[in-house]
Amino acid sequence: MSDPILRLEGIHTDIAQYHILHGVDLEVPRGAVTMLLGRNGVGKTTTLRTVIGHWQARAGRILFDGAEITGAKTPDRARMGIGYVPEDMGIFSDLTVEENMTLAAATGPLDPARRDRIFEAFPPLRTFWRSPAGTLSGGQKQMLTIARAMAEERRLYLIDEPTKGLAPAIVSTMAGALRDLKRQGASILLVEQNFAVAKALGDYAAVMDDGRIVWAGEMQELATDAGLQERLMGLSMEAQ
């Protein structure tokens, strides 16, 4: 990987008195989907939040498109072209879908062409454009969460468990939207527990355990090697 869009070098992150990341080394290839996998509680969400700047790394370096951003504030990282989709959605329930999208387009009005691409990816958002976001179903709220990150051009998307708890039809819609993002040239770092989704979407994978990356390589290699899955994650994920 000669020119990754994101590189983490020896990242250590603490939350209160807890040492969560223990020297994370990770490279995210440009224009591809990289799956960040592992059991619950091993540091995947903390890794994403450290990249976007919600938590500051205590040691190590973060390089985005060749520039060090380790000490940068979250708004500055967003302006550089990093979008973050949290697991807890983070939408404004009392505002309409349109108002949520308007707030997400921080540099100016939402571009109509971009809005139409979002409608193509997530048709329910067109239907409920003027409705309060709090009235949406769980799957529709997750669509809005991802759409908010798409409100402006992003070079890197950090997405935390977008399909968790969703019906298969909604999962399929999500997967299609993420494929479209990749076709448009975006790079994606995606935390996902659904191995079928990871296998279908991922170009590369990195597996975490105890706050470290313990394996990294092509998703196809992990997806076709049940023994490797069991060794890294304690179970054959082909059964998932």
Rank of each mutant, 00 (worst) to 15 (best):
I52V: 07
T13E: 03
E27A: 15
R148I: 10
I62V: 12
R179S: 13
R155F: 02
M174C: 10
D25I: 06
L166D: 03
G185I: 07
M237K: 02
T173Q: 15
P162S: 05
L235Y: 14
V191L: 04
K44G: 05
L201G: 05
A186R: 05
L235Q: 15
E27P: 06
L158V: 11
D3F: 10
A147I: 05
V42L: 00
I146S: 00
A223E: 04
R77I: 14
M143E: 02
I5D: 08
Q229C: 08
E120S: 15
E99C: 13
R179V: 13
V28L: 09
T47K: 04
G38S: 10
S236T: 12
R39G: 07
I11T: 04
E27T: 14
M80N: 11
D94T: 14
Q142D: 04
A205K: 07
G38V: 03
A186V: 08
A133V: 11
M80C: 11
I118W: 03
E99H: 14
D225A: 12
D116A: 12
A198V: 09
I15C: 11
R61Y: 03
R77P: 09
G71L: 05
L8W: 06
E192F: 04
G66W: 08
D180H: 14
D65I: 07
G211N: 08
A121R: 08
T50A: 03
H19P: 06
V51I: 15
L21K: 01
